[in-house]
Design a binder for these strands. Structure first.
Length: 860
RNA sequence: GGGCAUUUAGCUCAGCUGGGAGAGCAUCCGCUUGACGUGCGGAAGGUCACAGGUUCGAGCCCUGUAGUGCCCACCA
């Protein structure tokens, strides 16, 4: 047998393992030999091909991987599919930046050449991501990797688009959309993030035509005044409704604006009179439609002023224009005041530029029918289950409120909209395949990236090929694991697309986790410099420690605070596992052969530890099924440290250093079987170290992957025997406590008296000697004032009576009295006896009796 | 404005159908006990945010208040 090295080295453990697993096909789904197993499927949320994976990716994929490995060992044929997202806007921005550095210009290059550059980018970064996945120890089926722009996905996207188009669920329309003037593309509503920005509220005089008087109108955006078409007040507003039909002068350009009434206006807000800019504000747009106003767009794509504004403003940036207009109006004496305000301003999620609401012709998905279908489904038995459950409500509410989805983007990198216009006839056709003939011109825009990632659950499995083996076997996905920040972007859209095209929800369960923050709970950001690169952590502590730290010590759905403290703890824990294993394996003789353990051969200590192991397995399984990974790992952690290593492992030294060969052999079998269970249970969390240790096990198979997830022994343990073990532990603890309290060294010799049967004394004696350093243990036949009782026996520490020992006894008496009083109160309460759980009542009675008995000795 | 989450030891957090308050780290004391000092044994440290209520019994359930974080909507 090879020898394990003295200290746990993550580098040695992790070296070559991914290749080993891959080479032996453990990551592959749908292997011939696994076809009889039930299928289980997941996909990784596709990372953007823009760059490197961060700590959030590491957390997400670690959770997925833990589930994948757990399911695999639990007897499932697992598909864990890798994939990447072309990330339209983000990648295009990166490629453009790179080209700029090289002194190139995308417009000069043209679409074709630019896309070549983008594909080059994808190849490079895709490879890099792929390597990072392996460094994180992910057991994905790399032979089935997909990309949102690969051939199959292009087919899927075109087919979906065409069907929705034909059904009238995709339409082209002119509406107010969110325009990103830096990236020069339309955005969807959820790509706009609002922040509380400082701004100004400008009050202007709007004179009546005859200059007899004026109305006060306030705005935050004077630069839009050139597009104004009316001034609006509430029809119920007594102050203004007498003016309906009159006209006022726009102080920015001298044009006449009609005064109109609309219920949209809030009488309480501002001056009660509002200017209306139909082409640059969504609410004004609605008002204008109701009143038949004109829509005048006054800005270019880069948010500079266009030719419809007076000459002196043309070409100015919107903010320059704002200053200039205000100045001009002030010069005319029509500026009343400027107030400082804080208001919500929409920014582009990607470029952070202030979004310009603009009238624009774009493609939209009509959401109502699609979202309604999902809502109906979520009320049925076939709903997708959310973990934690509260996210189901968040998911549902969004569906209930969402507006049509703007899906066209003015970019080149992405799925081009499959709609063609005939330049001669003007005919418009949606086609899954390119239209033949020079007259057909394809729409210039591409689709929102999320349009294609929404198809991931079925598209990546092979749809639209209905006969795709993956699709048939693994759809719908068993569980989707993702952070809460992309529920709207991704989970919702997968849901309605999946449901629309397959009639079932695309995933049975959704597990939502939190975001990773720094040790103080702050968001990781470049400016704070508190970001953590998972690969730095891996280098220093190893993948296993990182994985363990990320997946445990938190609560599902809540944010995770990353700290090196946790990684240290994980690393120490793994070192503990390593050393316990090393010790056990070093005690196994070369002749050792694992075999089935029989209940009859077990000592009381064996029975105790095996019963603890059984309940551990039950707890771990229950929690794994609920995705309570932290909870599951906690059980293993405390079992390993406390029950197994600090106690049982130490106890076995008595037997192993003795000369009863039969007992020795049994003990080794128990140690071996529990060690193996620990390794398998920990394997999903820390695959490398457990595989490494596994390879030292006698009779090991090719890989720990070949093992089955452990189950309970099925033994009916003898309650009294188990109780004896518990009593022994308690006695040792008490004696240690006594020593610490009296200033004795832990290994100071001590004399004990034992009250109980000779049989019990015989089995307990060697442990009392070894672990409490008992110099003598004298069996006594009479109860003694100094006895401390454990359920199976009593122990007295022989010592001279001192003030201190008296005080300690007084303390004990006080404790017992309090407990007895508490217990009496409960037991004398008829309601408790009648209503409480009978087992609880029984346990309470027993405690009461034993406390009373102990107290009686002291008070004799 | 609406909603969700959160408040437990100095710090970071557990506490899983209500039944004697826990872990890791930090602190203090003691141990080179034949796997591990990356360890072992022990100690100290908490009106479980606050106020009511339900219950025989509340950290846990209900109502309210306050602090913190986040999401959605949005009034020019």
């Amino acid at each position: 047998m090879k020898e394990m090295s003295k200290a746990y080295s993550h580098k040695e453990c992790e070296q070559g393992k991914e290749e080993f697993w891959e080479k032996n096909h453990y990551f592959e789904a749908m292997r011939e030999e696994n076809l009889s197993k039930p299928p289980f499927s997941m996909i990784v949320p596709p990372p953007n091909v823009t760059g490197i994976l961060h700590i959030g990716h590491a957390t997400n994929t670690t959770i997925l991987d833990i589930i994948a490995r757990y399911k695999k060992l639990s007897g499932y044929d697992v598909l864990f599919l890798p994939d990447m997202d072309h990330a339209g806007i983000a990648t295009q921005a990166k490629v453009e930046a790179k080209l700029r550095e090289e002194g190139k210009n995308k417009y000069e290059m043209g679409r074709e050449k630019f896309l070549e550059e983008a594909w080059k980018w994808k190849e490079e970064h895709g490879d890099y991501i792929s390597r990072q996945w392996r460094a994180l120890g992910l057991s994905m089926d790399y032979s089935k990797e997909r990309f949102t722009l690969d051939e199959g996905m292009c087919k899927a996207v075109n087919k979906v688009f065409k069907k929705l188009y034909d059904e009238g669920l995709i339409y082209r329309g002119e509406r107010i959309i969110n325009w990103d003037p830096v990236l020069k593309t339309a955005l969807s509503d959820i790509e706009v993030v609002y922040s509380q920005d400082n701004g100004h509220f400008y009050y202007f005089k709007y004179w009546f035509e005859d200059h007899s008087s004026y109305l006060e109108v306030a705005t935050t955006r004077p630069e839009t005044m050139f597009g104004d078409q009316a001034v609006v007040f509430n029809p119920d507003d007594e102050r203004f409704n007498k003016y309906e039909g009159k006209k006022v002068i726009n102080p920015a350009n001298g044009e006449l604006l009609p005064l109109i009434a609309d219920r949209y206006v809030d009488m309480e807000f501002g001056t009660g009179v509002m200017k209306c800019t139909p082409a640059h504000d969504p609410n004004d747009f609605q008002i204008a439609k109701r009143h038949g106003l004109k829509f005048v767009k006054t800005m270019n794509d880069d948010a500079t002023m266009n030719d419809l504004v007076p000459e002196e403003y043309r070409g100015l940036d919107r903010y320059e224009c704002r200053k200039k207009v205000v100045k001009a109006i002030e010069a005319n004496g029509d500026l009343i005041k400027i107030e400082d305000i804080v208001h919500n301003v929409g920014h582009s999620d990607r470029s952070k530029a202030v979004v310009e609401p603009m009238l624009s012709k774009q493609w939209f998905v009509k959401m109502k029918p699609l979202s309604t279908a999902v809502m109906e489904m979520q009320k049925s038995e076939n709903r997708t289950e959310f973990f934690p459950q509260r996210f189901a409500d968040i998911f549902y509410q969004w569906l209930d409120n969402t507006d049509d989805w703007c899906i066209s983007r003015q970019l080149w990198w992405g799925h081009r909209i499959p709609v063609y216009t005939n330049s001669k006839t003007g005919q418009v056709v949606c086609s899954e395949t390119p239209m033949e003939g020079e007259d057909w011109v394809q729409d210039n825009d591409v689709l929102d990236t999320w349009f294609s990632s929404a198809l991931a659950p079925f598209g990546f499995l092979g749809w639209p090929d209905e006969n795709s083996p993956l699709l048939k076997r693994y759809y719908p996905l068993d569980v989707m694991v993702t952070a809460y920040d992309i529920i709207f972007f991704w989970v919702e859209r997968m849901a309605f697309q999946g449901l629309h095209f397959s009639k079932v929800m695309p995933f049975k369960k959704v597990y939502i986790h939190g975001l990773v923050r720094d040790a103080q709970g702050r968001k990781m950001s470049k400016s704070l410099g508190n970001g953590i690169d998972p690969f730095d952590v891996i280098e220093k502590y190893g993948t296993d420690s990182l994985r363990y730290a990320l997946a445990t010590g938190g609560t599902p759905g809540l944010d995770i605070n990353f700290s090196f403290n946790k990684v240290d703890m994980a690393h120490n824990f793994l070192n503990k596992v390593w050393n316990a294993s090393r010790y056990i394996l070093s005690t196994l003789p070369t002749s050792f052969t694992p075999r089935e353990i029989q209940k009859e051969e077990l000592s009381y200590l064996d029975q105790w530890i095996l019963s603890e192991a059984d309940s551990l397995i039950n707890s771990v399984k229950t929690n794994m099924e609920k995705y309570e990974l932290g909870q599951a790992a906690d059980y293993v952690y405390s079992f390993v440290y406390d029950e197994f290593c600090s106690e049982y492992l130490e106890y076995t030294k008595v037997t192993l250093q003795g000369d009863d060969e039969t007992k020795k052999e049994t003990t080794l079998q128990v140690l071996y079987s529990i060690l193996k269970k620990i390794l398998v249970v920990l394997f999903p969390f820390a695959p490398f170290i457990t595989e490494e240790i596994y390879s030292y096990l006698p009779n090991h198979k090719l890989s720990i992957y070949e093992e089955e997830y452990p189950s309970v022994t099925g033994f009916e343990y003898d309650k009294e025997e188990v109780q004896l073990a518990l009593s022994l532990r308690q006695a040792i603890k008490n004696i240690r406590n006594h020593k610490a309290n009296t200033g004795l060294a832990p290994n100071a010799p001590i004399d004990l008296q034992f009250y109980g049967s000779q049989e019990k004394l015989d089995v307990v004696l060697p442990y009392l000697t070894r672990f409490s350093f008992a110099r003598s243990v004298t069996k006594i036949e009479k109860e003694n004032d100094d006895l401390i009782y454990f359920p199976s026996f009593g122990i007295a520490i022989v010592e001279e009576e001192t003030e201190e020992s008296k005080a300690r006894r007084e303390k004990r008496i006080e404790f017992l009295r309090n407990e007895i009083a508490r217990s009496e109160k409960m037991l004398s309460n008829p309601n408790f006896l009648a209503k409480a759980n009978p087992a609880k009542v029984e346990a309470e009675k027993q405690k009461y009796e034993s406390y009373k008995a102990e107290l009686a000795k002291y008070l004799k």
